[in-house]
Nucleic acid binder design. Structure first.
Lengths: 241, 241
DNA sequence: GATCGACACCTGTCTAGACATGTACTAACG
DNA sequence: CGTTAGTACATGTCTAGACAGGTGTCGATC
């Protein structure tokens, strides 16, 4: 990584995570950090803006920035890839394909993917042998064809697609609570009507073209999602369904 | 609002929402926007960075930015204030105080608020007469004393606290799925064991001092939360519980 | 010892420019 | 007509400086 502001952000983040700056501690000023790293103050500001958007540091005119929390953040790719996330959690990722079919899109799928024919994958994901999530993902045909050529049992689809040149750029995640259907319960090995955390997930490429439209259902007591926001920046939206 | 980059961001956002730039459309270039608004290119870039973090526009070196979606965003305060949110949704906000007690903090409350004694408020929130959420909020005593002096049935606690000088700056929201307890079901007028979307919510002031620690439980089929992220920026964290 | 005012320090905003890197478009050629 | 190369245009990164507005600290005063 040779981009200066990212390097500065990574080093400050590492220092926080290492305990050099515990929560509540004041960070060095922008000018001090600029001198330390041998970069311009604007470069430092860009690095600190990154950390603020992650919820790691506060920002307030006139006062030194403070460390808010010492916690591990997740990148876009770790969030998108169950396998990458599982490993980061110290668990063994697993997958069990229930079905992969090429069919006509439902109205919702057609609307979200802007296509009439799709590949639809149903897969159970496991953490160290324990089922925690069902992903039901619709892909446009050109992506689905690539998925169909993979061994989805053992491979990370996300990683493989990226290796094949598919560029994931943006995503929207919608989180809600639903009750497990009989099929959900059977696939996840939980009692019927247990609560599940449902994530609707739509991923697009840099041009805004949809690459995936997925409904993931997590065992309610196993997984939760956390979002940081601030008065300066918010990406969380509460909506009526 | 006289801050240039915020003004530019607001006007571009309004143009998108008005349909001047439908999803997929290319925005004017940074140089063109700089000329149009009579500001520096750096000012335009800051405005567009705001819109990108909201998931409204894409960003890619060498190519014009594209509009990703036409949707209404929410500010930090709208997200924090049920009343403000309800009105923005075209609904009438309501509240029914179940209990407000001053007591010792539980271990979790003590840990999250860094205090041994708290005020604890349980309130049912209604949208146009319909109960959709139970908020169970713990406040440190200095905040709780202010809350205790309010009419929490009809007032927006959030708004009133701000009027009283409390500054909310940062928050962390953790979303999971739980099953309604008997008490939940009674308060929300739903069947027992229905799924609820649970939001743990911790709000802090600019110094990182905790102001609220709340467990909100939403009727699963009524409310969902959406987060936008991108390869450049992510504030969503998937965690094990 | 408490309070207040001044000032130094800090972040936020804005400008201007230079340069690197990626993308899209156009013209030329086969 | 299709392909390719070149170039113009676009965004990303970095620098430097100026100025506005907020915060914290210190010294003086009561």
């Amino acid at each position: 990584m040779s981009i200066a502001y990212r390097q500065v952000a990574a080093e400050v983040r590492a220092a926080v995570e290492a305990g050099d700056y515990p929560p509540g501690a004041r960070l060095p000023s922008e000018s001090e950090l600029a001198r330390s790293y041998g970069v311009a103050r604007g470069t430092v500001r860009q690095a600190l803006a990154t950390l603020a958007s992650e919820g790691l540091v506060s920002t307030r005119r006139g006062a030194r920035r403070l460390v808010l929390a010492r916690q591990r953040l997740q990148g876009f790719n770790e969030l998108r890839s169950f396998s990458e996330w599982a490993r980061a959690m110290g668990e063994r990722p697993g997958g069990r394909v229930v079905a992969l079919v090429r069919r006509e899109a439902s109205p919702t799928e057609a609307e979200q993917l802007d296509t009439d024919r799709i590949y639809h994958l149903t897969r159970v994901r496991l953490l160290s042998g324990r089922p925690v999530m069902i992903e039901r993902t619709a892909y446009p045909e050109h992506i689905g064809a690539l998925v169909a050529s993979m061994n989805a049992e053992s491979e990370s689809i996300t990683q493989r697609l990226q290796e094949l040149g598919v560029v994931f750029a943006n995503a929207a995640h919608t989180l809600g609570a639903v009750v497990a259907t009989a099929e959900d319960a059977r696939l996840l090995d939980i009692r019927p009507r247990a609560p599940l955390l449902r994530e609707w997930r739509r991923t697009t490429d840099p041009d805004g073209a949809a690459l995936e439209w997925s409904e993931d259902r997590y065992v309610g007591e196993a997984v939760a999602f956390t979002v940081h926001n601030s008065v300066h920046q918010n990406t969380l939206i509460r909506g009526l369904t």
